[in-house]
Design a protein around this nucleic acid. Structure first.
Lengths: 187, 187
DNA sequence: TAGGGTTTTTGATAAATGTCAAAAATCAAT
DNA sequence: ATTGATTTTTGACATTTATCAAAAACCCTA
Protein backbone atom coordinates (compact mmCIF):
# COMPACT_ATOMS: atom_id res chain seq x y z
CA UNK A 1 0.00 0.00 0.00
CA UNK A 2 2.85 2.34 0.78
CA UNK A 3 4.02 1.81 -2.81
CA UNK A 4 0.73 3.07 -4.11
CA UNK A 5 0.74 6.13 -1.87
CA UNK A 6 4.33 6.95 -2.69
CA UNK A 7 3.68 6.63 -6.36
CA UNK A 8 0.60 8.79 -6.26
CA UNK A 9 1.86 11.54 -4.02
CA UNK A 10 5.08 11.74 -5.98
CA UNK A 11 3.32 13.43 -8.82
CA UNK A 12 0.55 15.10 -6.89
CA UNK A 13 0.40 15.84 -3.15
CA UNK A 14 -2.80 14.91 -1.35
CA UNK A 15 -4.37 16.31 1.78
CA UNK A 16 -4.02 13.86 4.65
CA UNK A 17 -7.78 13.30 4.75
CA UNK A 18 -7.77 12.40 1.08
CA UNK A 19 -4.78 10.17 1.62
CA UNK A 20 -6.48 8.34 4.47
CA UNK A 21 -9.71 7.95 2.55
CA UNK A 22 -7.77 6.58 -0.37
CA UNK A 23 -6.04 4.00 1.79
CA UNK A 24 -9.32 2.69 3.08
CA UNK A 25 -10.71 2.22 -0.40
CA UNK A 26 -8.16 -0.11 -1.92
CA UNK A 27 -8.20 -3.86 -1.39
CA UNK A 28 -5.14 -6.02 -1.74
CA UNK A 29 -5.23 -8.85 -4.27
CA UNK A 30 -2.65 -11.54 -4.93
CA UNK A 31 -2.81 -13.72 -8.01
CA UNK A 32 -0.61 -16.37 -9.58
CA UNK A 33 1.06 -16.53 -12.96
CA UNK A 34 -1.40 -17.24 -15.80
CA UNK A 35 -4.44 -16.28 -13.70
CA UNK A 36 -6.93 -13.94 -15.30
CA UNK A 37 -7.75 -10.56 -13.82
CA UNK A 38 -10.47 -10.09 -16.42
CA UNK A 39 -12.19 -12.23 -19.03
CA UNK A 40 -13.58 -10.82 -22.24
CA UNK A 41 -17.32 -10.37 -22.19
CA UNK A 42 -17.33 -9.32 -18.53
CA UNK A 43 -17.70 -5.72 -17.47
CA UNK A 44 -14.56 -4.52 -15.77
CA UNK A 45 -15.73 -2.81 -12.60
CA UNK A 46 -12.36 -2.23 -11.00
CA UNK A 47 -9.27 -0.21 -11.41
CA UNK A 48 -6.05 -1.85 -10.23
CA UNK A 49 -2.73 -0.57 -9.11
CA UNK A 50 -0.01 -3.06 -9.92
CA UNK A 51 2.43 -3.13 -7.04
CA UNK A 52 4.47 -6.11 -8.15
CA UNK A 53 4.53 -8.39 -11.17
CA UNK A 54 3.64 -8.22 -14.82
CA UNK A 55 0.51 -8.78 -16.87
CA UNK A 56 -0.89 -8.30 -20.33
CA UNK A 57 -4.09 -7.25 -22.06
CA UNK A 58 -5.02 -9.28 -25.11
CA UNK A 59 -7.96 -10.02 -27.32
CA UNK A 60 -8.81 -12.81 -29.71
CA UNK A 61 -8.75 -12.28 -33.44
CA UNK A 62 -9.31 -15.18 -35.83
CA UNK A 63 -8.23 -17.62 -33.17
CA UNK A 64 -5.05 -15.72 -32.40
CA UNK A 65 -4.27 -13.85 -29.22
CA UNK A 66 -3.30 -10.24 -29.83
CA UNK A 67 -1.43 -8.75 -26.89
CA UNK A 68 -1.88 -5.01 -27.09
CA UNK A 69 -0.52 -3.79 -23.80
CA UNK A 70 1.57 -4.81 -20.81
CA UNK A 71 1.37 -3.71 -17.23
CA UNK A 72 4.29 -3.57 -14.82
CA UNK A 73 5.10 -2.23 -11.38
CA UNK A 74 3.40 1.08 -10.61
CA UNK A 75 0.98 0.94 -13.49
CA UNK A 76 -2.71 1.50 -13.11
CA UNK A 77 -4.41 -1.23 -15.05
CA UNK A 78 -7.94 -2.01 -16.12
CA UNK A 79 -9.82 -2.45 -19.34
CA UNK A 80 -10.25 1.29 -19.73
CA UNK A 81 -12.94 1.03 -22.34
CA UNK A 82 -15.05 -1.28 -20.26
CA UNK A 83 -14.32 0.47 -16.98
CA UNK A 84 -15.24 3.86 -18.38
CA UNK A 85 -18.25 2.95 -20.49
CA UNK A 86 -19.60 0.06 -18.44
CA UNK A 87 -19.75 -2.10 -21.56
CA UNK A 88 -18.45 -5.69 -21.64
CA UNK A 89 -14.72 -5.91 -22.17
CA UNK A 90 -13.36 -6.99 -25.54
CA UNK A 91 -10.08 -7.91 -23.94
CA UNK A 92 -8.66 -10.30 -21.36
CA UNK A 93 -6.17 -9.39 -18.71
CA UNK A 94 -3.84 -12.22 -17.79
CA UNK A 95 -0.88 -12.39 -15.44
CA UNK A 96 2.55 -12.99 -16.91
CA UNK A 97 4.04 -13.25 -13.43
CA UNK A 98 2.52 -13.61 -9.98
CA UNK A 99 1.23 -10.17 -8.98
CA UNK A 100 0.34 -8.04 -6.02
CA UNK A 101 -2.43 -5.60 -6.87
CA UNK A 102 -4.58 -3.02 -5.13
CA UNK A 103 -8.15 -2.84 -6.37
CA UNK A 104 -10.80 -0.15 -6.16
CA UNK A 105 -14.30 -0.45 -7.57
CA UNK A 106 -15.76 2.10 -9.91
CA UNK A 107 -18.41 3.03 -7.35
CA UNK A 108 -15.93 3.50 -4.55
CA UNK A 109 -13.74 5.59 -6.81
CA UNK A 110 -16.72 7.69 -7.87
CA UNK A 111 -17.45 8.31 -4.23
CA UNK A 112 -13.85 9.40 -3.59
CA UNK A 113 -13.99 11.68 -6.60
CA UNK A 114 -17.14 13.29 -5.24
CA UNK A 115 -15.70 13.85 -1.82
CA UNK A 116 -12.21 15.03 -2.70
CA UNK A 117 -11.35 17.55 -5.38
CA UNK A 118 -7.77 16.50 -4.66
CA UNK A 119 -8.37 13.00 -5.86
CA UNK A 120 -10.32 14.14 -8.89
CA UNK A 121 -7.29 16.18 -9.79
CA UNK A 122 -5.00 13.24 -9.25
CA UNK A 123 -7.06 11.14 -11.60
CA UNK A 124 -7.22 13.92 -14.16
CA UNK A 125 -3.46 14.23 -14.11
CA UNK A 126 -3.06 10.48 -14.34
CA UNK A 127 -5.21 10.46 -17.44
CA UNK A 128 -3.05 13.19 -18.93
CA UNK A 129 0.03 11.09 -18.39
CA UNK A 130 -1.56 8.00 -19.79
CA UNK A 131 -2.93 9.92 -22.73
CA UNK A 132 0.38 11.21 -23.93
CA UNK A 133 1.99 7.85 -23.33
CA UNK A 134 -0.61 6.22 -25.53
CA UNK A 135 -0.24 8.95 -28.13
CA UNK A 136 3.42 8.11 -28.39
CA UNK A 137 2.70 4.44 -28.80
CA UNK A 138 0.15 5.32 -31.43
CA UNK A 139 2.57 7.28 -33.56
CA UNK A 140 5.03 4.45 -33.20
CA UNK A 141 2.51 1.88 -34.30
CA UNK A 142 1.21 3.76 -37.27
CA UNK A 143 4.27 5.38 -38.71
CA UNK A 144 7.28 3.23 -37.96
CA UNK A 145 8.56 0.02 -39.50
CA UNK A 146 8.81 -3.24 -37.62
CA UNK A 147 12.54 -2.72 -37.19
CA UNK A 148 12.09 0.78 -35.84
CA UNK A 149 9.41 -0.37 -33.43
CA UNK A 150 11.72 -3.06 -32.13
CA UNK A 151 14.59 -0.62 -31.74
CA UNK A 152 12.31 1.75 -29.94
CA UNK A 153 11.27 -0.98 -27.53
CA UNK A 154 14.91 -1.89 -26.96
CA UNK A 155 15.69 1.74 -26.20
CA UNK A 156 12.68 2.82 -24.18
CA UNK A 157 11.46 -0.27 -22.36
CA UNK A 158 14.13 -2.99 -22.52
CA UNK A 159 12.74 -4.60 -19.36
CA UNK A 160 9.80 -5.79 -21.44
CA UNK A 161 12.15 -7.94 -23.50
CA UNK A 162 13.52 -9.53 -20.39
CA UNK A 163 10.28 -10.40 -18.71
CA UNK A 164 7.91 -11.29 -21.51
CA UNK A 165 7.84 -14.24 -23.96
CA UNK A 166 8.67 -13.33 -27.54
CA UNK A 167 5.27 -14.30 -28.87
CA UNK A 168 3.56 -11.71 -26.69
CA UNK A 169 6.05 -9.05 -27.69
CA UNK A 170 5.61 -9.78 -31.38
CA UNK A 171 1.91 -9.14 -31.26
CA UNK A 172 2.47 -6.14 -28.99
CA UNK A 173 4.68 -4.71 -31.73
CA UNK A 174 2.14 -5.68 -34.35
CA UNK A 175 4.45 -8.03 -36.22
CA UNK A 176 4.70 -11.78 -36.65
CA UNK A 177 6.87 -13.74 -34.30
CA UNK A 178 9.08 -14.82 -37.20
CA UNK A 179 9.73 -11.26 -38.29
CA UNK A 180 10.56 -10.29 -34.73
CA UNK A 181 12.95 -13.20 -34.42
CA UNK A 182 14.68 -12.18 -37.65
CA UNK A 183 14.80 -8.52 -36.74
CA UNK A 184 16.27 -9.33 -33.39
CA UNK A 185 18.99 -11.54 -34.81
CA UNK A 186 20.37 -8.57 -36.73
CA UNK A 187 21.71 -6.90 -33.58
CA UNK B 1 -19.80 30.15 -27.45
CA UNK B 2 -23.18 28.57 -26.94
CA UNK B 3 -21.90 25.59 -28.95
CA UNK B 4 -19.11 25.09 -26.48
CA UNK B 5 -21.40 25.28 -23.47
CA UNK B 6 -23.96 22.99 -25.03
CA UNK B 7 -21.33 20.48 -25.90
CA UNK B 8 -19.78 20.54 -22.47
CA UNK B 9 -22.92 20.46 -20.40
CA UNK B 10 -24.36 17.69 -22.56
CA UNK B 11 -22.01 15.21 -20.98
CA UNK B 12 -21.57 16.84 -17.61
CA UNK B 13 -23.78 19.47 -15.94
CA UNK B 14 -22.03 22.49 -14.43
CA UNK B 15 -23.06 24.78 -11.63
CA UNK B 16 -24.08 28.16 -13.01
CA UNK B 17 -21.06 29.82 -11.35
CA UNK B 18 -18.75 27.39 -13.05
CA UNK B 19 -20.55 27.91 -16.31
CA UNK B 20 -20.20 31.67 -16.06
CA UNK B 21 -16.57 31.48 -15.10
CA UNK B 22 -15.94 29.19 -18.02
CA UNK B 23 -17.56 31.61 -20.44
CA UNK B 24 -15.34 34.43 -19.30
CA UNK B 25 -12.20 32.42 -19.84
CA UNK B 26 -12.49 31.50 -23.49
CA UNK B 27 -11.48 33.84 -26.29
CA UNK B 28 -12.87 33.61 -29.77
CA UNK B 29 -10.43 33.07 -32.63
CA UNK B 30 -11.10 33.03 -36.34
CA UNK B 31 -8.52 31.78 -38.80
CA UNK B 32 -8.41 31.12 -42.52
CA UNK B 33 -7.74 27.96 -44.47
CA UNK B 34 -4.07 26.94 -44.46
CA UNK B 35 -3.24 29.15 -41.46
CA UNK B 36 -1.28 27.56 -38.65
CA UNK B 37 -2.63 27.30 -35.14
CA UNK B 38 0.71 25.94 -33.95
CA UNK B 39 4.21 25.56 -35.40
CA UNK B 40 6.56 22.80 -34.37
CA UNK B 41 9.21 23.92 -31.93
CA UNK B 42 6.85 26.26 -30.11
CA UNK B 43 5.31 25.39 -26.79
CA UNK B 44 1.56 25.04 -27.13
CA UNK B 45 0.10 27.07 -24.29
CA UNK B 46 -3.54 26.89 -25.26
CA UNK B 47 -6.36 24.46 -25.48
CA UNK B 48 -8.88 25.11 -28.24
CA UNK B 49 -12.46 24.19 -28.76
CA UNK B 50 -13.23 23.88 -32.45
CA UNK B 51 -16.66 25.35 -33.09
CA UNK B 52 -16.57 25.25 -36.85
CA UNK B 53 -14.15 24.06 -39.50
CA UNK B 54 -11.51 21.37 -39.85
CA UNK B 55 -7.81 21.12 -39.11
CA UNK B 56 -5.00 18.63 -38.88
CA UNK B 57 -1.97 17.83 -36.75
CA UNK B 58 1.12 16.81 -38.66
CA UNK B 59 4.84 16.44 -38.21
CA UNK B 60 7.75 16.28 -40.59
CA UNK B 61 9.57 13.05 -41.20
CA UNK B 62 12.32 12.82 -43.83
CA UNK B 63 10.87 15.82 -45.63
CA UNK B 64 7.38 14.35 -45.68
CA UNK B 65 4.40 15.64 -43.77
CA UNK B 66 2.77 12.98 -41.65
CA UNK B 67 -0.79 13.90 -40.70
CA UNK B 68 -1.61 11.99 -37.55
CA UNK B 69 -4.90 13.47 -36.47
CA UNK B 70 -7.78 15.61 -37.60
CA UNK B 71 -10.00 17.96 -35.66
CA UNK B 72 -13.60 18.78 -36.55
CA UNK B 73 -16.58 20.53 -35.01
CA UNK B 74 -16.86 20.03 -31.24
CA UNK B 75 -13.38 18.68 -30.79
CA UNK B 76 -10.97 19.95 -28.20
CA UNK B 77 -7.67 20.41 -29.95
CA UNK B 78 -4.13 21.18 -28.88
CA UNK B 79 -0.77 19.53 -29.08
CA UNK B 80 -1.51 17.47 -26.00
CA UNK B 81 2.05 16.47 -25.40
CA UNK B 82 3.30 20.03 -25.50
CA UNK B 83 0.33 21.47 -23.64
CA UNK B 84 0.63 18.95 -20.83
CA UNK B 85 4.39 18.80 -20.45
CA UNK B 86 5.28 22.35 -21.44
CA UNK B 87 7.86 21.03 -23.89
CA UNK B 88 8.15 22.34 -27.47
CA UNK B 89 5.70 20.76 -29.85
CA UNK B 90 6.89 18.18 -32.35
CA UNK B 91 3.84 18.78 -34.47
CA UNK B 92 2.18 21.54 -36.44
CA UNK B 93 -1.51 22.32 -36.40
CA UNK B 94 -2.83 23.67 -39.66
CA UNK B 95 -6.32 24.57 -40.81
CA UNK B 96 -7.89 22.53 -43.57
CA UNK B 97 -10.86 24.89 -43.67
CA UNK B 98 -11.51 28.32 -42.20
CA UNK B 99 -12.24 27.80 -38.49
CA UNK B 100 -13.95 29.35 -35.53
CA UNK B 101 -12.23 28.41 -32.31
CA UNK B 102 -12.41 29.21 -28.62
CA UNK B 103 -9.10 29.38 -26.84
CA UNK B 104 -8.13 29.07 -23.19
CA UNK B 105 -4.59 29.34 -21.88
CA UNK B 106 -3.05 26.70 -19.68
CA UNK B 107 -2.78 29.18 -16.79
CA UNK B 108 -6.38 30.28 -17.06
CA UNK B 109 -7.49 26.68 -17.23
CA UNK B 110 -5.36 25.81 -14.20
CA UNK B 111 -7.06 28.61 -12.32
CA UNK B 112 -10.50 27.33 -13.29
CA UNK B 113 -9.51 23.83 -12.23
CA UNK B 114 -8.44 25.18 -8.84
CA UNK B 115 -11.63 27.08 -8.30
CA UNK B 116 -14.20 24.59 -9.52
CA UNK B 117 -14.22 20.91 -8.70
CA UNK B 118 -16.97 20.77 -11.35
CA UNK B 119 -14.66 21.80 -14.08
CA UNK B 120 -11.89 19.52 -12.93
CA UNK B 121 -14.39 16.70 -13.24
CA UNK B 122 -15.41 17.83 -16.66
CA UNK B 123 -11.83 17.76 -17.80
CA UNK B 124 -11.24 14.39 -16.21
CA UNK B 125 -14.23 12.97 -18.03
CA UNK B 126 -13.12 14.54 -21.27
CA UNK B 127 -9.75 12.86 -20.93
CA UNK B 128 -11.50 9.56 -20.36
CA UNK B 129 -13.43 9.98 -23.58
CA UNK B 130 -10.37 11.00 -25.51
CA UNK B 131 -8.35 8.18 -24.03
CA UNK B 132 -10.66 5.43 -25.15
CA UNK B 133 -11.05 7.06 -28.54
CA UNK B 134 -7.29 7.05 -28.97
CA UNK B 135 -7.07 3.49 -27.72
CA UNK B 136 -9.42 2.44 -30.48
CA UNK B 137 -7.38 4.24 -33.10
CA UNK B 138 -4.29 2.58 -31.69
CA UNK B 139 -5.62 -0.92 -32.04
CA UNK B 140 -6.72 -0.05 -35.54
CA UNK B 141 -3.31 1.28 -36.47
CA UNK B 142 -1.34 -1.59 -35.06
CA UNK B 143 -3.39 -4.61 -35.88
CA UNK B 144 -5.32 -3.95 -39.04
CA UNK B 145 -4.33 -3.98 -42.70
CA UNK B 146 -4.48 -0.90 -44.91
CA UNK B 147 -7.71 -2.13 -46.44
CA UNK B 148 -9.29 -2.71 -43.08
CA UNK B 149 -8.21 0.71 -41.85
CA UNK B 150 -9.79 2.30 -44.89
CA UNK B 151 -13.02 0.37 -44.44
CA UNK B 152 -13.09 1.35 -40.83
CA UNK B 153 -12.71 5.01 -41.75
CA UNK B 154 -15.47 4.66 -44.31
CA UNK B 155 -17.70 3.12 -41.68
CA UNK B 156 -16.92 5.22 -38.64
CA UNK B 157 -15.96 8.65 -39.91
CA UNK B 158 -16.98 9.00 -43.56
CA UNK B 159 -17.11 12.78 -43.22
CA UNK B 160 -13.32 12.77 -43.09
CA UNK B 161 -13.24 11.42 -46.63
CA UNK B 162 -15.47 14.20 -47.82
CA UNK B 163 -13.64 17.10 -46.26
CA UNK B 164 -9.99 16.18 -46.41
CA UNK B 165 -7.58 15.78 -49.36
CA UNK B 166 -6.54 12.22 -50.07
CA UNK B 167 -2.89 12.84 -49.31
CA UNK B 168 -3.67 13.82 -45.72
CA UNK B 169 -5.92 10.83 -45.27
CA UNK B 170 -3.30 8.43 -46.59
CA UNK B 171 -0.75 9.50 -44.03
CA UNK B 172 -3.45 9.56 -41.35
CA UNK B 173 -4.10 5.90 -42.18
CA UNK B 174 -0.39 5.20 -42.25
CA UNK B 175 -0.31 4.14 -45.89
CA UNK B 176 0.98 5.68 -49.10
CA UNK B 177 -1.30 7.78 -51.21
CA UNK B 178 -1.03 5.31 -54.07
CA UNK B 179 -2.10 2.38 -51.93
CA UNK B 180 -5.04 4.38 -50.64
CA UNK B 181 -6.06 5.29 -54.15
CA UNK B 182 -5.92 1.64 -55.21
CA UNK B 183 -7.74 0.40 -52.14
CA UNK B 184 -10.46 2.94 -52.67
CA UNK B 185 -10.99 2.03 -56.31
CA UNK B 186 -11.94 -1.50 -55.28
CA UNK B 187 -15.25 -0.41 -53.79
C1' DT C 1 -13.85 28.17 -70.88
C1' DA C 2 -8.89 27.98 -71.16
C1' DG C 3 -4.70 27.42 -68.91
C1' DG C 4 -1.76 26.28 -65.05
C1' DG C 5 -1.31 24.21 -60.89
C1' DT C 6 -2.58 20.66 -57.86
C1' DT C 7 -4.43 16.21 -56.74
C1' DT C 8 -5.40 11.57 -57.93
C1' DT C 9 -4.74 7.45 -60.56
C1' DT C 10 -2.15 3.95 -62.98
C1' DG C 11 1.83 0.99 -64.11
C1' DA C 12 6.12 -1.34 -63.16
C1' DT C 13 9.08 -2.83 -59.84
C1' DA C 14 11.26 -3.31 -55.23
C1' DA C 15 11.10 -3.89 -50.39
C1' DA C 16 8.95 -5.32 -46.19
C1' DT C 17 6.40 -8.46 -43.84
C1' DG C 18 3.36 -12.59 -43.38
C1' DT C 19 2.51 -17.60 -43.60
C1' DC C 20 3.43 -22.37 -43.21
C1' DA C 21 6.36 -26.07 -42.01
C1' DA C 22 10.12 -27.99 -39.87
C1' DA C 23 14.31 -27.79 -37.13
C1' DA C 24 16.69 -26.12 -33.14
C1' DA C 25 16.90 -24.33 -28.65
C1' DT C 26 15.10 -23.70 -24.16
C1' DC C 27 12.63 -24.83 -20.06
C1' DA C 28 10.42 -27.48 -16.40
C1' DA C 29 9.60 -31.43 -13.92
C1' DT C 30 10.94 -35.68 -12.83
C1' DA D 1 20.70 -35.61 -16.50
C1' DT D 2 16.48 -37.06 -19.45
C1' DT D 3 12.19 -36.47 -21.38
C1' DG D 4 8.45 -33.99 -23.17
C1' DA D 5 6.46 -29.67 -23.88
C1' DT D 6 6.99 -25.10 -25.11
C1' DT D 7 9.33 -21.35 -27.32
C1' DT D 8 12.33 -19.59 -30.82
C1' DT D 9 14.66 -19.77 -35.17
C1' DT D 10 15.24 -20.82 -39.99
C1' DG D 11 13.88 -21.57 -44.87
C1' DA D 12 10.90 -21.13 -48.88
C1' DC D 13 7.46 -18.76 -50.74
C1' DA D 14 3.23 -15.62 -51.01
C1' DT D 15 1.20 -11.27 -50.09
C1' DT D 16 1.00 -6.63 -48.93
C1' DT D 17 2.58 -2.26 -49.32
C1' DA D 18 6.07 1.29 -50.80
C1' DT D 19 8.43 3.82 -54.34
C1' DC D 20 9.18 6.19 -58.53
C1' DA D 21 7.54 7.99 -62.74
C1' DA D 22 4.15 9.37 -65.73
C1' DA D 23 -0.58 10.03 -67.20
C1' DA D 24 -5.18 11.53 -66.12
C1' DA D 25 -8.52 14.08 -63.61
C1' DC D 26 -9.71 17.92 -60.99
C1' DC D 27 -10.02 22.49 -59.55
C1' DC D 28 -9.24 27.56 -59.44
C1' DT D 29 -8.86 31.86 -61.35
C1' DA D 30 -8.58 34.92 -64.85
Amino acid sequence: MQELLNHITAFHPLSSEAENALQDCFTKITLAKNDYLLNEGKVCRHLYFLEKGALRGFYNLDGKEITHWFGFEKDFVTSFHSFITGEPAVENIQLIEGCTLWAISKETLADLLNRYHDIERLVRITYEKYYIRLEERYVNAQFKSAKERYENLLQETPYILERVPLGFIASYLGISQETLSRTRSKF
